[in-house]
Design a protein around this nucleic acid. Structure first.
Length: 571
RNA sequence: CGGGGCGUAGCUCAGCCUGGUAGAGCACACGGUUCGGGACCGUGUGGUCGGAGGUUCAAAUCCUCUCGCCCCGACCA
Protein backbone atom coordinates (compact mmCIF):
# COMPACT_ATOMS: atom_id res chain seq x y z
CA UNK A 1 0.00 0.00 0.00
CA UNK A 2 1.23 3.43 -0.90
CA UNK A 3 0.73 5.96 1.87
CA UNK A 4 -0.25 8.58 -0.72
CA UNK A 5 -3.19 6.36 -1.76
CA UNK A 6 -4.15 5.33 1.76
CA UNK A 7 -6.25 7.01 4.45
CA UNK A 8 -3.71 7.59 7.18
CA UNK A 9 -3.28 10.80 9.14
CA UNK A 10 -0.96 10.96 12.10
CA UNK A 11 -1.31 13.52 14.87
CA UNK A 12 1.54 15.55 16.24
CA UNK A 13 -0.18 16.31 19.54
CA UNK A 14 -2.00 13.98 21.88
CA UNK A 15 -5.75 14.48 21.67
CA UNK A 16 -6.81 16.49 24.70
CA UNK A 17 -9.18 13.78 25.91
CA UNK A 18 -6.71 10.89 25.69
CA UNK A 19 -5.24 10.00 29.05
CA UNK A 20 -3.82 6.51 28.77
CA UNK A 21 -0.90 5.65 26.54
CA UNK A 22 -2.75 3.19 24.31
CA UNK A 23 -5.46 5.75 23.59
CA UNK A 24 -2.89 8.46 22.89
CA UNK A 25 -0.74 6.33 20.61
CA UNK A 26 -3.58 4.64 18.74
CA UNK A 27 -5.12 8.06 18.11
CA UNK A 28 -1.86 9.73 17.12
CA UNK A 29 -0.93 6.83 14.86
CA UNK A 30 -4.17 7.38 12.97
CA UNK A 31 -5.67 4.03 13.99
CA UNK A 32 -8.73 5.05 15.96
CA UNK A 33 -10.96 8.10 16.11
CA UNK A 34 -13.31 8.92 18.94
CA UNK A 35 -16.86 9.71 17.93
CA UNK A 36 -18.45 9.92 21.39
CA UNK A 37 -17.61 8.76 24.90
CA UNK A 38 -16.57 5.13 24.60
CA UNK A 39 -17.45 4.95 20.90
CA UNK A 40 -14.71 4.77 18.30
CA UNK A 41 -14.12 4.46 14.59
CA UNK A 42 -11.43 1.98 13.63
CA UNK A 43 -9.58 3.80 10.87
CA UNK A 44 -7.98 1.70 8.10
CA UNK A 45 -4.68 1.18 9.88
CA UNK A 46 -6.40 0.25 13.15
CA UNK A 47 -8.82 -2.03 11.40
CA UNK A 48 -5.94 -4.00 9.91
CA UNK A 49 -4.71 -4.75 13.44
CA UNK A 50 -8.19 -5.70 14.57
CA UNK A 51 -8.59 -7.90 11.52
CA UNK A 52 -5.34 -9.72 12.23
CA UNK A 53 -6.34 -10.35 15.81
CA UNK A 54 -9.76 -11.63 14.72
CA UNK A 55 -8.05 -14.06 12.33
CA UNK A 56 -5.89 -15.41 15.13
CA UNK A 57 -8.91 -15.78 17.38
CA UNK A 58 -10.94 -17.55 14.66
CA UNK A 59 -8.04 -19.83 13.98
CA UNK A 60 -7.78 -20.94 17.56
CA UNK A 61 -11.51 -21.15 18.15
CA UNK A 62 -11.94 -23.34 15.10
CA UNK A 63 -8.97 -25.48 16.13
CA UNK A 64 -10.57 -25.92 19.56
CA UNK A 65 -13.75 -27.24 17.97
CA UNK A 66 -15.94 -24.13 18.24
CA UNK A 67 -18.19 -23.22 15.32
CA UNK A 68 -18.64 -19.65 14.13
CA UNK A 69 -21.99 -17.98 13.62
CA UNK A 70 -23.27 -14.41 13.79
CA UNK A 71 -26.11 -13.23 15.99
CA UNK A 72 -28.02 -9.95 15.82
CA UNK A 73 -27.02 -6.82 17.70
CA UNK A 74 -30.62 -5.83 18.21
CA UNK A 75 -32.60 -8.27 20.31
CA UNK A 76 -36.26 -8.43 21.31
CA UNK A 77 -37.11 -7.77 24.95
CA UNK A 78 -39.07 -11.02 25.25
CA UNK A 79 -35.91 -13.10 25.39
CA UNK A 80 -34.48 -10.95 28.13
CA UNK A 81 -37.72 -11.03 30.06
CA UNK A 82 -37.63 -14.79 29.85
CA UNK A 83 -34.13 -15.01 31.33
CA UNK A 84 -35.05 -12.40 33.93
CA UNK A 85 -32.27 -10.06 32.90
CA UNK A 86 -34.57 -7.41 31.39
CA UNK A 87 -35.19 -6.36 34.99
CA UNK A 88 -31.84 -7.32 36.50
CA UNK A 89 -29.36 -5.95 33.98
CA UNK A 90 -30.06 -2.33 34.81
CA UNK A 91 -29.07 0.80 32.96
CA UNK A 92 -26.07 -0.81 31.33
CA UNK A 93 -28.50 -2.45 28.93
CA UNK A 94 -29.19 -0.05 26.08
CA UNK A 95 -32.91 -0.28 25.45
CA UNK A 96 -34.76 0.90 22.36
CA UNK A 97 -38.19 0.78 20.82
CA UNK A 98 -39.18 0.12 17.25
CA UNK A 99 -41.89 2.05 15.36
CA UNK A 100 -44.56 -0.12 16.94
CA UNK A 101 -43.30 0.78 20.41
CA UNK A 102 -42.03 -2.77 20.90
CA UNK A 103 -39.08 -3.10 23.28
CA UNK A 104 -35.66 -4.13 22.08
CA UNK A 105 -32.14 -3.90 23.40
CA UNK A 106 -28.72 -3.66 21.85
CA UNK A 107 -26.97 -6.86 22.90
CA UNK A 108 -24.34 -6.49 25.62
CA UNK A 109 -23.84 -10.26 25.52
CA UNK A 110 -25.67 -13.12 23.85
CA UNK A 111 -26.61 -15.83 26.32
CA UNK A 112 -30.30 -15.29 25.63
CA UNK A 113 -30.06 -15.39 21.86
CA UNK A 114 -27.78 -18.40 21.68
CA UNK A 115 -29.75 -20.32 24.27
CA UNK A 116 -32.91 -19.67 22.31
CA UNK A 117 -31.24 -20.79 19.09
CA UNK A 118 -29.96 -23.99 20.67
CA UNK A 119 -33.15 -24.89 22.54
CA UNK A 120 -35.21 -24.81 19.35
CA UNK A 121 -32.87 -27.22 17.57
CA UNK A 122 -31.18 -29.52 20.03
CA UNK A 123 -33.37 -31.96 21.92
CA UNK A 124 -31.19 -35.02 22.44
CA UNK A 125 -28.06 -35.88 24.40
CA UNK A 126 -26.83 -37.35 21.11
CA UNK A 127 -26.52 -33.84 19.64
CA UNK A 128 -24.37 -32.51 22.46
CA UNK A 129 -21.95 -30.98 23.20
CA UNK A 130 -21.83 -27.94 20.95
CA UNK A 131 -19.69 -24.84 21.16
CA UNK A 132 -20.71 -21.77 19.14
CA UNK A 133 -18.94 -18.45 18.82
CA UNK A 134 -19.13 -15.12 17.08
CA UNK A 135 -17.03 -11.99 16.76
CA UNK A 136 -19.33 -9.08 17.06
CA UNK A 137 -19.98 -5.55 18.20
CA UNK A 138 -21.47 -5.27 21.67
CA UNK A 139 -22.95 -2.29 23.41
CA UNK A 140 -22.88 -1.73 27.14
CA UNK A 141 -23.99 1.62 28.45
CA UNK A 142 -21.18 1.77 31.01
CA UNK A 143 -21.52 4.17 33.90
CA UNK A 144 -18.12 5.48 33.03
CA UNK A 145 -16.41 4.53 29.81
CA UNK A 146 -12.74 5.39 29.97
CA UNK A 147 -9.23 4.73 28.82
CA UNK A 148 -9.95 4.69 25.09
CA UNK A 149 -10.51 1.21 23.75
CA UNK A 150 -9.90 -0.33 27.16
CA UNK A 151 -13.41 0.37 28.40
CA UNK A 152 -15.64 1.39 25.55
CA UNK A 153 -19.40 1.33 25.40
CA UNK A 154 -19.43 -0.07 21.90
CA UNK A 155 -16.73 -2.67 21.47
CA UNK A 156 -15.83 -5.80 19.54
CA UNK A 157 -15.85 -9.05 21.42
CA UNK A 158 -15.47 -12.70 20.62
CA UNK A 159 -18.06 -14.60 22.62
CA UNK A 160 -18.51 -18.35 22.68
CA UNK A 161 -21.14 -20.49 24.36
CA UNK A 162 -20.97 -24.24 24.96
CA UNK A 163 -23.77 -26.66 25.85
CA UNK A 164 -23.30 -29.98 27.62
CA UNK A 165 -24.97 -32.93 29.27
CA UNK A 166 -22.49 -33.25 32.11
CA UNK A 167 -20.07 -31.31 34.26
CA UNK A 168 -17.26 -33.46 32.87
CA UNK A 169 -18.14 -32.49 29.32
CA UNK A 170 -18.31 -28.81 30.30
CA UNK A 171 -14.94 -29.13 31.98
CA UNK A 172 -13.47 -30.54 28.81
CA UNK A 173 -14.71 -27.60 26.74
CA UNK A 174 -13.63 -25.17 29.45
CA UNK A 175 -10.09 -26.54 29.39
CA UNK A 176 -10.06 -26.46 25.59
CA UNK A 177 -11.10 -22.80 25.65
CA UNK A 178 -8.47 -22.05 28.26
CA UNK A 179 -5.81 -23.63 26.03
CA UNK A 180 -7.13 -21.76 22.99
CA UNK A 181 -6.97 -18.45 24.87
CA UNK A 182 -3.42 -19.13 25.92
CA UNK A 183 -2.52 -19.82 22.30
CA UNK A 184 -4.19 -16.60 21.16
CA UNK A 185 -2.31 -14.46 23.65
CA UNK A 186 0.92 -16.37 23.08
CA UNK A 187 0.61 -15.79 19.37
CA UNK A 188 0.02 -12.09 19.97
CA UNK A 189 3.29 -11.97 21.88
CA UNK A 190 1.65 -10.64 25.04
CA UNK A 191 2.81 -11.11 28.62
CA UNK A 192 -0.26 -12.30 30.47
CA UNK A 193 -1.45 -14.46 33.28
CA UNK A 194 -4.59 -16.53 33.77
CA UNK A 195 -6.12 -16.13 37.20
CA UNK A 196 -9.11 -17.31 39.18
CA UNK A 197 -11.86 -14.75 39.11
CA UNK A 198 -15.12 -13.82 40.72
CA UNK A 199 -18.07 -14.76 38.55
CA UNK A 200 -19.89 -11.47 39.13
CA UNK A 201 -23.44 -11.05 37.95
CA UNK A 202 -22.98 -13.61 35.16
CA UNK A 203 -23.04 -16.34 37.75
CA UNK A 204 -21.63 -19.83 37.61
CA UNK A 205 -19.26 -22.06 39.47
CA UNK A 206 -15.81 -21.44 38.07
CA UNK A 207 -14.22 -18.64 36.17
CA UNK A 208 -10.80 -17.54 34.97
CA UNK A 209 -9.63 -14.21 33.68
CA UNK A 210 -6.78 -13.63 31.28
CA UNK A 211 -4.85 -10.59 32.33
CA UNK A 212 -2.32 -8.76 30.20
CA UNK A 213 0.18 -7.35 32.66
CA UNK A 214 0.54 -3.59 32.35
CA UNK A 215 0.92 -0.73 34.79
CA UNK A 216 -2.26 0.95 33.52
CA UNK A 217 -4.41 -2.13 34.11
CA UNK A 218 -7.74 -1.54 35.85
CA UNK A 219 -7.51 -4.76 37.82
CA UNK A 220 -5.09 -5.98 40.44
CA UNK A 221 -3.78 -9.50 40.02
CA UNK A 222 -2.42 -11.56 42.87
CA UNK A 223 0.08 -14.24 42.01
CA UNK A 224 2.45 -16.61 43.74
CA UNK A 225 5.86 -16.88 42.10
CA UNK A 226 6.54 -20.09 44.03
CA UNK A 227 3.56 -22.31 43.19
CA UNK A 228 1.81 -20.49 40.34
CA UNK A 229 -1.36 -19.60 42.25
CA UNK A 230 -3.04 -16.64 40.61
CA UNK A 231 -6.30 -14.79 41.26
CA UNK A 232 -7.98 -11.48 40.69
CA UNK A 233 -7.69 -9.43 43.86
CA UNK A 234 -11.51 -9.53 44.04
CA UNK A 235 -11.22 -13.26 44.59
CA UNK A 236 -7.71 -13.81 45.93
CA UNK A 237 -7.27 -15.45 49.32
CA UNK A 238 -4.20 -15.57 51.52
CA UNK A 239 -2.83 -17.63 54.35
CA UNK A 240 -3.11 -16.36 57.96
CA UNK A 241 -1.46 -13.05 58.71
CA UNK A 242 1.32 -12.85 61.29
CA UNK A 243 -0.15 -11.84 64.68
CA UNK A 244 -0.15 -8.11 65.47
CA UNK A 245 2.07 -6.66 68.23
CA UNK A 246 1.12 -7.81 71.71
CA UNK A 247 -1.69 -6.01 73.58
CA UNK A 248 -0.13 -3.56 76.00
CA UNK A 249 -1.04 -4.46 79.59
CA UNK A 250 -3.75 -6.65 81.02
CA UNK A 251 -6.91 -7.68 79.21
CA UNK A 252 -9.90 -6.33 81.15
CA UNK A 253 -12.81 -8.57 82.11
CA UNK A 254 -15.12 -6.43 79.98
CA UNK A 255 -14.61 -3.78 77.29
CA UNK A 256 -13.79 -0.33 78.63
CA UNK A 257 -15.00 2.83 76.96
CA UNK A 258 -12.42 5.56 76.46
CA UNK A 259 -12.84 9.14 75.28
CA UNK A 260 -11.34 9.61 71.81
CA UNK A 261 -12.61 12.97 70.59
CA UNK A 262 -12.66 13.58 66.87
CA UNK A 263 -10.69 10.46 65.95
CA UNK A 264 -12.75 8.73 63.30
CA UNK A 265 -10.03 6.95 61.33
CA UNK A 266 -8.09 3.93 62.51
CA UNK A 267 -4.85 5.85 62.03
CA UNK A 268 -6.06 8.72 64.25
CA UNK A 269 -7.41 6.55 67.05
CA UNK A 270 -4.36 4.31 66.89
CA UNK A 271 -2.09 7.26 67.42
CA UNK A 272 -4.33 8.70 70.14
CA UNK A 273 -4.45 5.43 72.10
CA UNK A 274 -0.92 4.29 71.18
CA UNK A 275 -2.25 1.09 69.65
CA UNK A 276 -1.14 -0.38 66.31
CA UNK A 277 -3.82 -0.33 63.55
CA UNK A 278 -3.73 -4.14 63.46
CA UNK A 279 -5.22 -4.14 66.99
CA UNK A 280 -8.38 -2.41 65.79
CA UNK A 281 -11.55 -3.86 64.43
CA UNK A 282 -12.69 -1.70 61.53
CA UNK A 283 -16.47 -1.68 61.39
CA UNK A 284 -18.31 -0.81 58.21
CA UNK A 285 -22.05 -0.55 57.80
CA UNK A 286 -23.19 -1.57 54.34
CA UNK A 287 -26.46 -1.46 52.54
CA UNK A 288 -27.39 -4.16 50.03
CA UNK A 289 -30.41 -4.72 47.84
CA UNK A 290 -31.94 -6.74 50.70
CA UNK A 291 -30.61 -5.58 54.07
CA UNK A 292 -28.21 -3.59 56.18
CA UNK A 293 -25.19 -5.53 57.36
CA UNK A 294 -22.03 -4.95 59.32
CA UNK A 295 -18.61 -5.96 58.07
CA UNK A 296 -15.59 -6.29 60.34
CA UNK A 297 -11.99 -6.34 59.19
CA UNK A 298 -8.73 -5.81 61.02
CA UNK A 299 -7.73 -2.14 61.26
CA UNK A 300 -4.80 -2.48 58.86
CA UNK A 301 -6.89 -4.37 56.28
CA UNK A 302 -9.18 -3.16 53.52
CA UNK A 303 -12.66 -4.56 53.06
CA UNK A 304 -13.08 -6.55 49.85
CA UNK A 305 -16.59 -5.59 48.81
CA UNK A 306 -16.89 -8.35 46.23
CA UNK A 307 -16.18 -11.00 48.85
CA UNK A 308 -18.67 -9.39 51.21
CA UNK A 309 -21.28 -9.21 48.48
CA UNK A 310 -20.90 -12.91 47.83
CA UNK A 311 -21.09 -13.78 51.54
CA UNK A 312 -24.28 -11.74 51.87
CA UNK A 313 -25.74 -13.14 48.66
CA UNK A 314 -26.36 -9.58 47.49
CA UNK A 315 -26.54 -8.22 43.96
CA UNK A 316 -25.67 -4.64 44.87
CA UNK A 317 -23.76 -3.37 47.85
CA UNK A 318 -22.64 0.03 49.01
CA UNK A 319 -21.36 1.69 52.12
CA UNK A 320 -24.25 3.10 54.11
CA UNK A 321 -24.73 6.85 54.31
CA UNK A 322 -23.98 8.73 57.51
CA UNK A 323 -27.67 8.90 58.40
CA UNK A 324 -28.11 5.17 57.89
CA UNK A 325 -25.02 4.41 59.97
CA UNK A 326 -26.43 6.38 62.86
CA UNK A 327 -29.77 4.66 62.45
CA UNK A 328 -28.19 1.19 62.52
CA UNK A 329 -25.62 1.72 65.27
CA UNK A 330 -27.27 4.43 67.33
CA UNK A 331 -23.93 6.24 67.31
CA UNK A 332 -21.97 8.65 65.21
CA UNK A 333 -20.25 7.76 61.95
CA UNK A 334 -16.62 6.88 62.59
CA UNK A 335 -17.28 5.39 66.01
CA UNK A 336 -19.02 2.16 65.00
CA UNK A 337 -18.22 -1.18 66.58
CA UNK A 338 -19.77 -4.65 66.79
CA UNK A 339 -20.33 -4.74 70.56
CA UNK A 340 -24.01 -4.54 71.41
CA UNK A 341 -25.24 -4.19 67.84
CA UNK A 342 -28.66 -5.70 67.28
CA UNK A 343 -30.94 -6.28 64.34
CA UNK A 344 -28.26 -6.55 61.66
CA UNK A 345 -26.17 -9.40 60.40
CA UNK A 346 -22.53 -9.12 61.43
CA UNK A 347 -19.91 -10.60 59.13
CA UNK A 348 -16.37 -10.80 60.49
CA UNK A 349 -13.16 -11.51 58.69
CA UNK A 350 -11.14 -14.52 59.88
CA UNK A 351 -8.35 -12.22 61.00
CA UNK A 352 -10.72 -10.31 63.27
CA UNK A 353 -11.64 -13.50 65.09
CA UNK A 354 -7.95 -14.37 65.45
CA UNK A 355 -7.42 -11.20 67.51
CA UNK A 356 -7.48 -12.33 71.13
CA UNK A 357 -8.12 -8.73 72.17
CA UNK A 358 -8.75 -5.54 70.23
CA UNK A 359 -10.10 -1.98 70.19
CA UNK A 360 -13.11 -0.76 68.24
CA UNK A 361 -15.78 1.92 68.08
CA UNK A 362 -18.25 2.26 70.94
CA UNK A 363 -21.29 3.30 68.86
CA UNK A 364 -21.19 6.56 70.75
CA UNK A 365 -19.74 9.81 69.52
CA UNK A 366 -16.10 10.41 70.48
CA UNK A 367 -15.78 7.05 72.24
CA UNK A 368 -13.98 3.79 71.51
CA UNK A 369 -13.89 0.48 73.36
CA UNK A 370 -10.60 -1.15 74.35
CA UNK A 371 -10.13 -4.68 75.62
CA UNK A 372 -12.74 -6.10 73.28
CA UNK A 373 -12.50 -9.88 72.98
CA UNK A 374 -14.08 -11.32 69.81
CA UNK A 375 -16.38 -14.18 70.71
CA UNK A 376 -16.78 -12.94 74.28
CA UNK A 377 -17.98 -9.39 73.70
CA UNK A 378 -19.67 -9.94 70.36
CA UNK A 379 -20.52 -12.92 68.17
CA UNK A 380 -20.63 -12.50 64.40
CA UNK A 381 -23.35 -14.23 62.41
CA UNK A 382 -20.83 -15.23 59.76
CA UNK A 383 -17.06 -15.53 59.79
CA UNK A 384 -15.53 -15.36 56.32
CA UNK A 385 -12.67 -14.09 54.22
CA UNK A 386 -13.40 -10.39 53.71
CA UNK A 387 -10.01 -8.76 53.31
CA UNK A 388 -8.17 -7.41 50.31
CA UNK A 389 -4.99 -9.41 49.83
CA UNK A 390 -1.80 -7.38 49.83
CA UNK A 391 1.61 -7.95 48.30
CA UNK A 392 3.76 -9.97 50.69
CA UNK A 393 0.83 -11.87 52.25
CA UNK A 394 1.24 -15.63 52.43
CA UNK A 395 0.08 -17.69 49.45
CA UNK A 396 -3.04 -19.65 50.44
CA UNK A 397 -1.59 -22.78 48.83
CA UNK A 398 2.11 -22.79 49.60
CA UNK A 399 2.72 -19.95 52.05
CA UNK A 400 5.28 -18.10 49.92
CA UNK A 401 4.92 -14.29 49.70
CA UNK A 402 2.33 -13.20 47.12
CA UNK A 403 2.91 -10.55 44.47
CA UNK A 404 0.36 -7.99 43.31
CA UNK A 405 0.51 -6.60 39.76
CA UNK A 406 -1.79 -4.56 37.56
CA UNK A 407 -3.55 -6.31 34.73
CA UNK A 408 -5.93 -5.65 31.86
CA UNK A 409 -8.71 -8.20 31.62
CA UNK A 410 -8.67 -9.32 27.98
CA UNK A 411 -10.50 -12.62 28.35
CA UNK A 412 -12.89 -14.20 30.79
CA UNK A 413 -14.21 -17.74 30.75
CA UNK A 414 -17.09 -19.05 32.88
CA UNK A 415 -18.74 -22.26 33.81
CA UNK A 416 -22.33 -21.07 33.78
CA UNK A 417 -24.11 -24.23 34.81
CA UNK A 418 -27.86 -24.18 34.16
CA UNK A 419 -28.63 -20.56 35.02
CA UNK A 420 -29.78 -19.65 31.51
CA UNK A 421 -30.81 -23.07 30.23
CA UNK A 422 -33.13 -23.58 33.18
CA UNK A 423 -34.66 -20.11 32.93
CA UNK A 424 -35.16 -20.45 29.18
CA UNK A 425 -36.05 -24.13 29.10
CA UNK A 426 -33.11 -25.18 27.00
CA UNK A 427 -33.32 -28.88 27.68
CA UNK A 428 -32.38 -32.25 26.24
CA UNK A 429 -33.59 -35.82 26.68
CA UNK A 430 -31.13 -38.29 28.16
CA UNK A 431 -30.75 -42.01 27.35
CA UNK A 432 -33.76 -42.81 29.51
CA UNK A 433 -35.94 -40.16 27.98
CA UNK A 434 -35.71 -37.80 30.91
CA UNK A 435 -35.56 -34.03 30.51
CA UNK A 436 -32.62 -31.98 31.85
CA UNK A 437 -31.50 -28.41 31.36
CA UNK A 438 -28.25 -28.21 29.41
CA UNK A 439 -25.09 -27.30 31.26
CA UNK A 440 -23.46 -24.22 29.79
CA UNK A 441 -20.16 -22.44 29.58
CA UNK A 442 -19.40 -19.02 28.13
CA UNK A 443 -16.14 -17.54 26.96
CA UNK A 444 -15.44 -13.90 26.16
CA UNK A 445 -12.42 -12.23 24.60
CA UNK A 446 -12.20 -8.48 24.07
CA UNK A 447 -10.81 -7.77 20.61
CA UNK A 448 -10.33 -4.01 20.83
CA UNK A 449 -9.20 -4.26 24.42
CA UNK A 450 -6.56 -6.80 23.47
CA UNK A 451 -5.28 -4.45 20.80
CA UNK A 452 -5.11 -1.62 23.34
CA UNK A 453 -3.43 -3.93 25.86
CA UNK A 454 -0.82 -4.85 23.25
CA UNK A 455 0.01 -1.16 22.88
CA UNK A 456 0.11 -0.63 26.64
CA UNK A 457 2.65 -3.39 26.83
CA UNK A 458 4.61 -2.58 23.68
CA UNK A 459 5.62 1.04 23.24
CA UNK A 460 8.48 3.42 23.90
CA UNK A 461 8.91 7.19 23.95
CA UNK A 462 8.76 7.30 20.14
CA UNK A 463 5.54 5.37 19.65
CA UNK A 464 4.08 1.91 19.28
CA UNK A 465 6.31 -1.16 18.98
CA UNK A 466 3.92 -3.67 17.41
CA UNK A 467 4.35 -7.34 18.02
CA UNK A 468 4.53 -8.70 14.49
CA UNK A 469 1.26 -10.70 14.58
CA UNK A 470 -0.76 -7.56 15.37
CA UNK A 471 1.19 -5.04 13.31
CA UNK A 472 -1.07 -3.41 10.68
CA UNK A 473 1.76 -3.83 8.17
CA UNK A 474 4.97 -5.77 8.65
CA UNK A 475 7.34 -3.44 6.84
CA UNK A 476 7.44 0.28 6.30
CA UNK A 477 9.35 1.30 3.22
CA UNK A 478 10.42 4.93 3.14
CA UNK A 479 11.64 6.85 0.14
CA UNK A 480 13.48 9.62 1.94
CA UNK A 481 14.02 11.84 -1.11
CA UNK A 482 11.41 10.82 -3.64
CA UNK A 483 12.31 13.81 -5.81
CA UNK A 484 15.64 12.13 -6.63
CA UNK A 485 15.04 9.82 -9.56
CA UNK A 486 17.45 7.13 -8.39
CA UNK A 487 15.83 7.02 -4.96
CA UNK A 488 12.35 6.88 -6.41
CA UNK A 489 13.29 4.08 -8.78
CA UNK A 490 15.05 2.06 -6.10
CA UNK A 491 12.14 2.46 -3.67
CA UNK A 492 9.54 1.65 -6.34
CA UNK A 493 11.53 -1.44 -7.22
CA UNK A 494 11.78 -2.59 -3.62
CA UNK A 495 8.08 -1.94 -3.11
CA UNK A 496 7.19 -4.17 -6.05
CA UNK A 497 9.54 -6.91 -4.92
CA UNK A 498 8.30 -6.85 -1.33
CA UNK A 499 4.72 -7.11 -2.51
CA UNK A 500 5.60 -9.92 -4.89
CA UNK A 501 7.28 -11.71 -1.99
CA UNK A 502 4.04 -11.51 -0.04
CA UNK A 503 5.34 -9.03 2.54
CA UNK A 504 2.77 -6.62 3.95
CA UNK A 505 4.41 -3.31 3.18
CA UNK A 506 3.34 0.28 3.60
CA UNK A 507 5.31 2.50 1.24
CA UNK A 508 5.73 6.03 2.55
CA UNK A 509 6.00 7.82 -0.78
CA UNK A 510 4.78 11.14 0.53
CA UNK A 511 6.48 14.37 -0.38
CA UNK A 512 7.45 15.12 3.22
CA UNK A 513 10.70 15.98 4.87
CA UNK A 514 12.78 13.02 6.05
CA UNK A 515 12.26 13.80 9.74
CA UNK A 516 8.49 13.72 9.37
CA UNK A 517 8.55 10.32 7.71
CA UNK A 518 11.02 8.81 10.14
CA UNK A 519 9.11 10.05 13.14
CA UNK A 520 5.83 8.79 11.71
CA UNK A 521 7.44 5.40 11.13
CA UNK A 522 8.45 5.23 14.79
CA UNK A 523 4.99 6.35 15.86
CA UNK A 524 3.05 3.74 13.92
CA UNK A 525 5.66 1.17 14.85
CA UNK A 526 5.78 -1.62 12.27
CA UNK A 527 8.44 -4.22 13.14
CA UNK A 528 10.77 -3.64 10.17
CA UNK A 529 11.71 -0.43 8.41
CA UNK A 530 13.53 -0.05 5.10
CA UNK A 531 14.81 3.42 4.26
CA UNK A 532 15.92 4.38 0.77
CA UNK A 533 17.99 7.57 0.80
CA UNK A 534 20.07 9.51 -1.68
CA UNK A 535 23.49 8.74 -0.19
CA UNK A 536 22.73 5.08 0.29
CA UNK A 537 21.45 4.61 -3.22
CA UNK A 538 24.62 6.16 -4.64
CA UNK A 539 26.51 3.36 -2.86
CA UNK A 540 23.94 0.76 -3.84
CA UNK A 541 22.66 0.49 -0.28
CA UNK A 542 19.45 0.86 1.71
CA UNK A 543 19.05 1.01 5.44
CA UNK A 544 17.30 -1.70 7.41
CA UNK A 545 16.18 -1.37 11.03
CA UNK A 546 14.00 -3.07 13.60
CA UNK A 547 11.49 -0.90 15.41
CA UNK A 548 12.22 -2.49 18.76
CA UNK A 549 15.93 -1.63 19.00
CA UNK A 550 16.07 1.05 16.28
CA UNK A 551 19.58 -0.01 15.26
CA UNK A 552 20.24 0.93 11.64
CA UNK A 553 22.01 -1.49 9.35
CA UNK A 554 23.12 -0.75 5.78
CA UNK A 555 22.35 -3.57 3.35
CA UNK A 556 22.91 -3.87 -0.40
CA UNK A 557 19.93 -2.69 -2.39
CA UNK A 558 19.78 -5.98 -4.26
CA UNK A 559 19.45 -7.88 -0.98
CA UNK A 560 16.87 -5.50 0.47
CA UNK A 561 13.91 -7.84 0.17
CA UNK A 562 15.73 -10.93 1.40
CA UNK A 563 17.21 -9.08 4.36
CA UNK A 564 13.87 -7.51 5.26
CA UNK A 565 12.27 -10.95 5.30
CA UNK A 566 15.08 -12.29 7.47
CA UNK A 567 14.60 -9.39 9.85
CA UNK A 568 10.87 -10.08 9.99
CA UNK A 569 11.49 -13.71 10.76
CA UNK A 570 13.66 -12.65 13.69
CA UNK A 571 10.95 -10.66 15.46
C1' C B 1 -25.18 9.33 40.53
C1' G B 2 -21.41 12.23 44.00
C1' G B 3 -16.66 15.21 43.62
C1' G B 4 -13.18 17.91 40.34
C1' G B 5 -11.75 19.93 35.51
C1' C B 6 -12.62 21.45 30.46
C1' G B 7 -15.60 23.13 25.78
C1' U B 8 -12.47 29.37 21.43
C1' A B 9 -10.10 27.51 13.55
C1' G B 10 -9.30 20.50 11.22
C1' C B 11 -5.57 19.61 15.85
C1' U B 12 -3.04 21.57 20.47
C1' C B 13 -3.98 25.91 23.10
C1' A B 14 -3.79 31.56 24.72
C1' G B 15 -7.44 35.37 25.59
C1' C B 16 -11.99 35.22 30.39
C1' C B 17 -10.04 37.18 36.67
C1' U B 18 -10.56 43.32 35.43
C1' G B 19 -16.69 43.31 29.38
C1' G B 20 -14.73 47.39 24.31
C1' U B 21 -12.28 45.28 16.44
C1' A B 22 -11.30 36.90 17.94
C1' G B 23 -5.44 35.36 18.49
C1' A B 24 -0.81 31.86 18.29
C1' G B 25 1.56 27.27 16.81
C1' C B 26 0.60 23.07 13.85
C1' A B 27 -2.29 21.51 9.57
C1' C B 28 -4.19 23.19 4.70
C1' A B 29 -3.50 26.35 -0.40
C1' C B 30 0.03 29.22 -3.46
C1' G B 31 5.27 31.14 -4.36
C1' G B 32 10.43 30.76 -2.98
C1' U B 33 14.71 28.69 -0.28
C1' U B 34 15.48 23.87 1.83
C1' C B 35 15.66 18.09 2.26
C1' G B 36 18.75 11.62 6.84
C1' G B 37 15.15 12.72 12.67
C1' G B 38 8.66 16.73 13.22
C1' A B 39 12.69 23.29 8.21
C1' C B 40 12.44 28.60 7.01
C1' C B 41 10.45 33.19 4.59
C1' G B 42 6.20 35.46 2.32
C1' U B 43 0.99 35.41 1.00
C1' G B 44 -3.69 33.22 1.84
C1' U B 45 -8.14 30.01 3.36
C1' G B 46 -10.47 28.83 7.77
C1' G B 47 -14.21 30.55 13.94
C1' U B 48 -22.62 31.98 14.85
C1' C B 49 -15.96 31.43 20.99
C1' G B 50 -20.74 24.02 22.64
C1' G B 51 -26.21 25.70 22.92
C1' A B 52 -30.31 28.76 25.03
C1' G B 53 -31.76 32.71 27.98
C1' G B 54 -30.40 37.03 30.98
C1' U B 55 -27.48 41.62 32.65
C1' U B 56 -25.26 45.73 29.74
C1' C B 57 -24.62 51.16 25.24
C1' A B 58 -21.46 46.75 24.46
C1' A B 59 -20.56 39.63 26.30
C1' A B 60 -15.66 34.56 24.25
C1' U B 61 -15.32 37.37 29.00
C1' C B 62 -20.42 38.46 34.08
C1' C B 63 -25.18 35.55 35.72
C1' U B 64 -28.82 31.33 35.05
C1' C B 65 -30.10 26.95 32.67
C1' U B 66 -28.67 23.18 29.37
C1' C B 67 -25.66 19.76 26.25
C1' G B 68 -20.98 17.41 25.51
C1' C B 69 -16.04 15.66 26.95
C1' C B 70 -12.11 14.16 30.57
C1' C B 71 -10.37 12.61 35.55
C1' C B 72 -11.43 10.43 40.74
C1' G B 73 -15.22 7.42 43.24
C1' A B 74 -19.34 4.04 43.28
C1' C B 75 -20.26 0.27 39.14
C1' C B 76 -18.38 -3.32 35.61
C1' A B 77 -19.10 -10.05 30.43
Amino acid sequence: MRWSHYFLFTLRDNPSDAEVISHQLLARAGMIDKLAAGIYTYLPLGWRSIDKLMRIVRDEMNAAGAVELMMPCVQPAELWQKSGRWQVYGKELLRLKDRHERDFCFGPTHEEVITDAVRRRITSYRQLPVNLYQIQTKFRDEIRPRFGLMRGREFIMKDAYSFHTSAASLDEAYRAMERAYRRVFDRCGLRYTAVEADTGNIGGSESHEFMVLAATGEDAVVSCPACGYGANVEKAASGPLPPPPAWPGRVPAAPEAVLTPGTTSVADVGEFLSLPPARFIKTMIVETDREFAVALVRGDDELNEVKLKNVLGAVHLQLASEAKVEQVTGGAMGFSGPVGLKGVRIVADFEVMRLEVAATGANRADHHLVGVVPGRDFTPDVVADLRVVRGGDACPRCGAPLEVQRGIEVGHIFKLGTKYSAAMECCYLDERGQTHPMIMGCYGLGIGRTMAAAVEQNHDEHGIVWPRPLAPFEVELIALNPDVAAVREAADGLYGQLQAAGVEVLFDDRDERPGVKLNDADLIGFPVRVVVGKKGVEQGQVELSLRRDRIKLPVPLAEGVARAREALASV
